[in-house]
Design a protein around this nucleic acid. Structure first.
Lengths: 221, 221, 221, 221
DNA sequence: TATGAATGAGAGTTCATTCAT
DNA sequence: TATGAATGAACTCTCATTCAT
């Protein structure tokens, strides 16, 4: 490819990214349905026709957006997890990476979570085979970590899928809470430690359990 | 009120409920935006004009739906929690009630969760001041339970709000997983035990803690 | 059906007809593609939404229009042909009816002929199975007349389908010419006689042929 | 003009023809409105901008296409007619040439006939003054042939314009029929003989007329 | 009170044409 | 001269809402 067309290609890619960024901002603020293509075009400072030269439909644009972001997110997690050795360390990597990623991509979190829960109940079929697989793959990754941790004696014999889902939910709602706070009281990643502990140890007071035959747990079941 | 107008009032309320039920079915299947008012009217077997005599707008109907369901849900939880004594028992009540409620109200769960996450980021203001407070109140209820549990020595000194959110997320994703499975492998409520344990003890192998010979955790599962 | 709803149904049908009439005017003036649904709505003095309550799409409206008109036209021809006895009389009925019908339905002629020739090359599949069958049926009707005329010794042994098509073309271009003339020099139906004669006898001078073995026709073929 | 610029001019003309050929293919398949300029450019393997250097608009391109083809067609007819002597021979030349031409230019026939009938009702003004005159001129040529044939005693005293139109229609629908048949049963030109006879003699059995004062024609009018 | 036809703003999308490179 | 990205008017169609009956 000539120098010239290389530059053109690059510039085109920039514009594509500009449009995606505009779309991300709007989708995260107003949701998919309340955001119109004209608004996206205006936000990106292009004519509507230009937007349609980059994305053949609103859905396809939404998809591209999610897929690109998920790709990056998944890549990060895979990378960090693969270098960790113990199951506990791998979990720590998952938690820390997720918090880090969404701390930097707050806008995308809104899209991610509304994709996960809810409106794609309708659209899952039409929307992103790909995206859906990413979700599953990530949950299975944590499932695998759980399985290996159990095998290695690091974890109790919990249900791997269920605990993976539980962790997923814990993290999501934590991120959600943090984003919601108008003035977040510090970085989100700092919470990884306590979240890991929460997931590993639970909320019970360990001493209490060790000291004596505490009668409470009986009443639980 | 006369006998006659009493009957009328009652019948009106029935119609209102029919319409809400129809709306719930459709909203949960297709989402708020993909469901049209005419469809709701048809599903409820009324004319569109009639629907508009009960609800002044689509949003307001959606709101009424959520509020009614949340009211009931919150009532249940409050009731069950108030009769439990220890913080652990209260947590157990929260978990069991939530699972029970959404097992019976699967359709509503889809609405609930998509309300929680996502699209109402825009609509929170327009949409249900009320609903929003319910959410908050419920999370604070769990926060209070945590606080009291910590005070009473049942729990570690975790952050009450954060752990409340964590529990919230854990439960939601568990319910989500269960609903998603085409053929759920048994009742959802049966999971309350393991979820409580998960939240209390975490996933770590208790042996470390058992060194001093605490046999309790066994009995939990 | 109650008196009341009968009246309503009737009025609805009137409105439907008004819209179709407006559409006919515009389609015949500007063609299918150059006519917009908004224009049709304005011409019919309705809002665009109203138009879409009667016809689910532009194509479907166009189709309805053609089908209704063709139905009537075909009905007329069938009726008149069936009461004629000789093949010649049947041909005369076809010719006269066609001229009469399109003299009264000039606007529709433009649509009819542009449907026949040309743009439906693309749309035949999407557009009106029905309409297409009507066309064919009518041509076959004339084909049948030709066949029976040949059998009865009224006609030469011409190819029935080809001569049917030839007649079809003759009539269409005659109607076309007449409509095109800004000030038509009298009624179109008056031409049926000379057209029938033309189709039966051709343009040659008959005397020449009758008197002797005229040598001209030889050189023709 | 220099050698160099001669070559350039020639090459430009080739490109122009390539584009026109691409346009003809697409217009005949999909019609004027359903064919986009970008498609034409792609079919011709040029960039859209290049196409616009040869034709200032879509309409103008369509016009150029028709005019060039009509020019050739008219030239052929004029040439062949001028060498024929009797009116009958001239008619034969017209018929044969038309069939021949459209047998070789099927694609163009679709455009020609849809131009003749129908959508250009609107566009006649905007579209091709020129083209329109060609049409008229050709019909008048046949009208003149008829007139001279009548004067020379070859034909009955038919209306020249009307019979010219009738012939025009006959030929068009014959060509149409032939093109429509998926597997045409032989060459189209072979039909010139029977079409000429049809136009000259009509469909009646000549014997009947010769034998006696056949009573049929009376009943016709 | 119940009805459902009428409304029209607004959505997503297309495509002929321009013009900087 | 050739290119093709950018443009935006115009199109078809939807649907929440109103109001006369």
């Amino acid at each position: 490819m000539s120098q010239r067309s290389l530059r053109k290609t690059r510039e085109l890619e920039w514009r594509r990214q500009d449009i995606l960024a505009a779309a991300e901002r709007l989708f995260s603020q107003k949701g998919f349905f309340k955001t119109s293509m004209v608004e996206i075009a205006e936000e990106a400072e292009f004519a509507i026709g230009t937007v349609y030269q980059f994305f053949k439909s609103k859905e396809q644009m939404y998809l591209s957006l999610i897929e690109a972001k998920m790709e990056k997110f998944a890549g990060l997690i895979d990378e960090r997890v693969s270098v960790a050795t113990s199951a506990t360390d791998k979990l720590e990597a998952v938690i820390r990476t997720k918090l880090e990623y969404f701390e930097k991509n707050r806008n995308f979190f809104r899209i991610y979570v509304s994709e996960w829960s809810g409106f794609e109940w309708t659209l899952k079929s039409a929307f992103g085979e790909q995206t859906w697989k990413r979700y599953q793959a990530q949950l299975e990754l944590v499932g695998d970590i759980m399985r290996s941790g159990i095998r290695r004696g690091e974890f109790r014999a919990v249900d791997p899928a269920e605990s993976a889902y539980a962790l997923h939910g814990m993290l999501n709602s934590t991120i959600y809470l943090w984003i919601l706070q108008v003035k977040p009281p510090g970085s989100l990643v700092t919470k990884s430690g306590s979240l890991l502990t929460l997931f590993l140890q639970g909320v019970s007071r360990p001493l209490a359990r060790q000291r004596s035959g505490s009668p409470k747990p009986k009443s639980i079941v």
